[in-house]
Amino acid sequence: MGLGGCIILIAAGAILTFATDWEMEGVNLDLVGVILIIVGLIGTTTFSSIARRKRVVIPPSTQVVQDEHHHRRDGYSDGYGA
């Protein structure tokens, strides 16, 4: 379950707890809403701690040093006069 699912659980629990006045026999909707809120909060904290551990720190890029070859221009170092 991702962060979006946790937020949906919290929202659904809050709606059941605070915004409804339905009565169901054998089911306490206020308690179901509170349970959904708690599960959503636990999921959010778990998701954030796992996401924090998976964060990868990329080291700064290293500078590439090109080895420059110094060529003599005497006519023989380029292979044509050898």
Rank of each mutant, 00 (worst) to 15 (best):
G5C: 04
L16S: 08
V39I: 10
A11E: 12
T17F: 09
T20M: 13
L9H: 00
S49T: 09
L3I: 01
L29H: 04
D67I: 12
R53G: 05
I50G: 03
G79A: 06
H69F: 14
E23S: 09
Q63S: 13
H69L: 15
L36S: 02
M24F: 15
V34T: 08
S77L: 10
S77K: 08
D21K: 13
T45Y: 05
I42Y: 03
R73V: 06
A19Q: 14
H70L: 05
M1N: 03
D30S: 15
V64L: 09
I7A: 13
V65L: 10
K54W: 05
G33H: 02
I42L: 05
F18V: 15
I10K: 02
D67R: 10
G5Y: 01
H71V: 08
R52W: 07
S61Y: 10
A12N: 03
E23Y: 11
N28G: 07
N28A: 11
R52E: 04
V27E: 14
R52C: 05
A12W: 01
Q63N: 13
Q63E: 10
I38R: 05
E68L: 10
T20Y: 11
R53T: 10
V56M: 12
V56P: 02
K54V: 06
L9G: 00
L31K: 10
R55S: 08
D78W: 07
F47I: 02
R53C: 05
T17V: 11
S49C: 10
L41G: 01
F47Y: 07
Y76Q: 12
S48L: 07
H69D: 13
Y76L: 12
A14E: 04
R52G: 04
G26D: 07
Q66F: 05
V39E: 00
S77N: 13
I37W: 03
A51R: 09
W22F: 14
R72N: 05
V34W: 02
I15H: 13
G33D: 00
R73Y: 07
E68N: 08
V64C: 04
L31C: 15
S48P: 02
R53V: 09
T46K: 03
A19K: 15
E68H: 11
G43D: 00
I7Q: 07
G26R: 08
G13Y: 00
T17C: 11
V65F: 07
V39A: 03
R73W: 12
V57F: 07
Q63I: 08
E25K: 12
A12E: 03
D74I: 05
A51K: 07
D30T: 15
V39N: 01
L31R: 11
G79V: 09
G40L: 00
